[in-house]
Nucleic acid binder design. Sequence first.
DNA 1: GAAACACTTCATTTTGTATTGAACTATTAA
DNA 2: TTAATAGTTCAATACAAAATGAAGTGTTTC
Lengths: 226, 226
Amino acid sequence: MEAQFKQIASLIGDPTRAVIMWTLMDGKAFTATELAIAANTSAPNISMHLAKLVQAELLSVESQGRHRYYKFSREEIAYAIEAMTNLLPAANSRRKADSEDIPAIKQCRTCYDHLAGKLGVAVTDSMLKQRIIIERSNNFTLSSKGKQWFSGFGIDAELLQQQRRSFLRPCLDWSERRYHIAGSLAAALLDKILFEDWIRKSKNSRAVVITAKGQKSLYKYLQIIV
Amino acid sequence: MEAQFKQIASLIGDPTRAVIMWTLMDGKAFTATELAIAANTSAPNISMHLAKLVQAELLSVESQGRHRYYKFSREEIAYAIEAMTNLLPAANSRRKADSEDIPAIKQCRTCYDHLAGKLGVAVTDSMLKQRIIIERSNNFTLSSKGKQWFSGFGIDAELLQQQRRSFLRPCLDWSERRYHIAGSLAAALLDKILFEDWIRKSKNSRAVVITAKGQKSLYKYLQIIV
DNA sequence: GAAACACTTCATTTTGTATTGAACTATTAA
DNA sequence: TTAATAGTTCAATACAAAATGAAGTGTTTC
């Protein structure tokens, strides 16, 4: 077992593979070439690394014509990467002020399948304030008022709650050092506000931008001033 | 940020350091020599690796005379290692039947600060059956009956619930592929049953053995037949 | 106070594995 | 049918980082 853990650790541990995993936290599937660009390496090299990750069943591939799309094979992978990400800020708090610090990604971004960054935390704060969700000993639950709120939003919380996957859980934000909501409910919310064009994903980055419509709606529904 | 993630990944990724982290999942502090034995390497080498982990604030050291005790600097580290551990079974399901498979550690072991393995899952199952805890969409909550049960056990659940740290959460068991309870409540339970001598930790391993007293008590309180 | 122990530091060597370049397959476009 | 694109495979190379061995610090024990 220890040997197997070593294997997984060194699998994620390689810098190039770490970037692959980091990039895939976007939630969508990437082609080998896209990942090569993200990791700033050659095609043969990325191919080798992807092969290793697929063989270990950390990633899955899907061929579409001459493209091969890579993504996490299952949700747990994203959870693990997320957990590793959370180890970071404290480790670097004393370092030089980050030169690579991109404000955009701190403001508003996605975390695998849900909203994170300043906006993610703001949404969560507002929901707590309005008692849409209730916090208790590091756990969130949806209130009955919350069920109505989501329902008015076109999201059937009851239905999501019946599913096997995690419904609502706190996720520590690496830039804010505060919790935002994750789980199927948070994923459904992200889907919805993307569909409604409140926010738009930027290309090749997890950063998202808030539209004018989003600005208005975020104030209306959640009293968030962007 | 990506660069920092790379750093953390390669920090955990080295085989020797992976063993260090794995060993520390025991929850207690280890000396450099103990870790050198666990990782099967030399004193200078383990010292170098430990220095790196401490510098990254993944571990903390405490000097006691000529011994230096190393442990996780914070709870999140254990969570991340745990999350990584859970990626394993699927990754190896197709492999040769594990030759290194030690039954003892599958039966009953600790997972950082709480009970895991077959016994951990059995305890959780029994608690669910008795409605001491309630499961809902991948989350456990303590029932009022449960509060009494723990109280009768000398554990003040209310008090634990007020603390900042996670109170009760599911933790996926790598050997059983099923959930067992984790969080401060599960940690308090482990403390209690260790104190009551139901189980005993074995040296240099996360495996625990069930005592005769434990066998009786597990049946009495949780209807578990060992 | 000397010896044994626990651990670290430094300079050197080793080694595992990532990377590179060339050649190859398969798909799409012209 | 040819050319371009997307990706993989293989053998050779390069390199960063781990391991080693000798020497040093501080602590306990006899």
